[in-house]
Structure formats: structure tokens, C-alpha cells
């Protein structure tokens, strides 16, 4: 079974929270120093059973800030 990890482009993330809503075990939106809150990654690599949720989070992110990277076995 292949695993994956996720990347968040912090220049693009504005903390909309769609990722946290789709995949709360992978993403958490937290306040930081910047104007908007930003998503943080909670687990890495992403377990197989969470992969579909990670992809959904990437697909629906309004800013296109999330990339799902497949890891070699």
C-alpha cells in the first residue's frame, strides 16, 4: 500500500479551514503571526485510510495551497 504526505504552501494558505473540515486528523488551522490563521499538518506520512480525505482537502482548498505527494514504497 502506498503512502503519501501533504504539503501546505504558506504563501497561499489563508486559513479558510476547508482542509480541517474535510480531514480533521490531518489538518488543524491555528492562529500565528500572520494576518490570517494557517493550516498545520498533524500527521506524516498520511495513513492509507486517510489518503482520500487528504486529496479531498487539496481539491477543495479555495487557494490551491495543498499538494498531496505520493511516497515510494
Amino acid at each position: 500500500m502506498s503512502q503519501c504526505r501533504v504539503e501546505i504552501d504558506k504563501d497561499l494558505c489563508q486559513g479558510h479551514g476547508v482542509c480541517e473540515s474535510e480531514a480533521p486528523r490531518i489538518f488543524k488551522v491555528t492562529e500565528g503571526d500572520s494576518a490570517y490563521p494557517q493550516a498545520q499538518i498533524l500527521i506524516e506520512p498520511i495513513p492509507e485510510n486517510q489518503k482520500a480525505l487528504a486529496k479531498k482537502a487539496a481539491r477543495y482548498c479555495p487557494n490551491g495551497a495543498i499538494t498531496v505527494v505520493e511516497l515510494d514504497e
Binding site: D11, L12, Q14, H16, V18, S34, Y36, P62, N63, G64
Partner: peptide, 19 residues
Amino acid sequence: NVFAAIPFGGGKRKCVGNA
């Protein structure tokens, strides 16, 4: 390319109301 279509701008100052 996420920077090709920019009706709401982009980056840290992108219109946060785009969604």
C-alpha cells in the same frame, strides 16, 4: 498552475472572500 487564473489576486493578499 495555481498562478494562471487570478481573478481574486493571489498569495497572502488574495481576496480572502473568494470562497
